[in-house]
């Protein structure tokens, strides 16, 4: 087994065994943080599927909200199991992605314009959830109706370890998909598009189809992540699951970690989560807003001083050391 593979296997083994390490009263909390990191890192990977090809979406909250709300509403109102509700949410998100993506790519809506159009979509979803307050409880948010104990059918478990393993599995699956896209033909095509769309089109790459495919995949995974998160937290709120705030937070974590590397989203999510958890514990309810204030400042500082993200920055540091040996520009 090669070095990196061995390291990966060991890391996964450690993650699988982690819940059984004695942690005293801290266990529930540690698991809670870890679950959140895995789910949001998965969502971040989904976002970066698009982001790395120059499709900077500022509206992934739309897919997140659609996935989460569809699942919860179907359960609460019709007792439809999340095993069906989740896929329904994913399907709806795919529909949104198609309706948004097709014209966008067809008519070459790119750059700032693409970012702001997606931002509008995120806001539309948020406002629709608020507007339909009769069935969504509007901006108060909605609590998942309990199945009255552990239930596989309702995907509700009191033991956080179940969600821990589910989140871990989902995250690994996300990495696998990311990796597959990375290796596939589509990547070369999409990268060509990211660099120069007209040139890509002229060498016969079907720009619209590739972009649409990657957008649909990204939306589906994001919606799935939203549904999973809702099942775990058992509460959905339009402001935390759709709209500009959460959309920006996803992008933040990914860019902070490094958009172009496999583990970038995890690193970024772990860091932002640790930061906000740490600050929350440090300031608690005493100084309302203080934790987020520092969080905001640190984000700005990171963006200014670590433009390539943490993974990118680290690679550049290593790259600089080996550069004289490997690289010899013609």
């Amino acid at each position: 087994m090669s070095g990196p593979r061995l390291a990966a296997a060991l890391a996964i083994a450690a993650l699988v065994g982690a819940p059984f390490v004695p942690m005293g009263g801290m266990r529930q909390y540690v698991l809670h943080v870890a679950i959140q990191i895995f789910i949001w890192a998965f969502i971040g990977s989904a976002w970066s599927l698009m982001g790395r090809f120059g499709l900077v979406s500022l509206g992934h909250g739309a897919f997140l909200g659609v996935g989460a709300y569809t699942t919860v509403l179907l359960w609460n109102h019709f007792r439809l199991t999340p095993w069906l509700g989740g896929p329904a949410g994913v399907g709806l998100a795919v529909l949104v992605a198609l309706v948004l993506g097709y014209p966008c790519f067809r008519f070459r809506v790119v750059g700032h314009y693409f970012g702001l159009v997606t931002l509008a979509v995120g806001e539309v979803v948020r406002l629709l959830i608020i507007a339909e307050r009769d069935c969504t409880d509007g901006s108060l948010g909605l609590t998942l109706k309990t199945a009255g104990g552990d239930s596989l059918l309702a995907v509700q478990f009191a033991d956080k370890r179940v969600f821990y393993y589910a989140a871990l599995l989902v995250w690994l699956a996300g990495l696998w998909i990311w990796h597959r896209v990375d290796r596939s033909m589509a990547r070369a095509a999409l990268e060509a598009i990211g660099e120069d769309e007209t040139a890509a089109a002229s060498v016969g790459i079907h720009v619209t189809r590739f972009k649409l495919g990657i957008t649909v995949a990204s939306a589906a995974l994001t919606a799935f992540g939203g549904a999973l998160y809702a099942q775990y937290i058992t509460y959905v709120n339009p402001d935390t699951l759709s709209g500009i705030g959460v959309s920006l937070k996803i992008v933040f974590a990914v860019v902070l970690g490094g958009m172009y590397s496999l583990l970038g989203p995890l690193i970024g999510t772990a860091l932002t989560t640790a930061l906000s958890e740490g600050l929350r514990i440090a300031f608690g309810l005493k100084f309302l807003g203080m934790a987020e204030t520092i969080y905001g400042v640190l984000l700005i500082v990171f963006i200014i001083f670590l433009p390539a993200g943490i993974a990118g920055g680290a690679r550049r540091l290593v790259g600089r050391r080996v550069a004289p040996v490997t690289a010899s520009p013609a």
């Binding site: 750059g111 992008v251 860019v255 309302l288 807003g289 987020e292 905001g296 400042v297 963006i303 433009p307």
Partner: peptide, 21 residues
């Protein structure tokens, strides 16, 4: 461009929470 956007996005979080504080 994405970094520029996010830097002002960070400012958004900062201003909202600082005002709350």
């Amino acid at each position: 461009p994405i970094n520029q956007l996010l830097a002002t996005g960070g400012l958004l979080f900062f201003l909202q929470s600082f005002a709350t504080f």
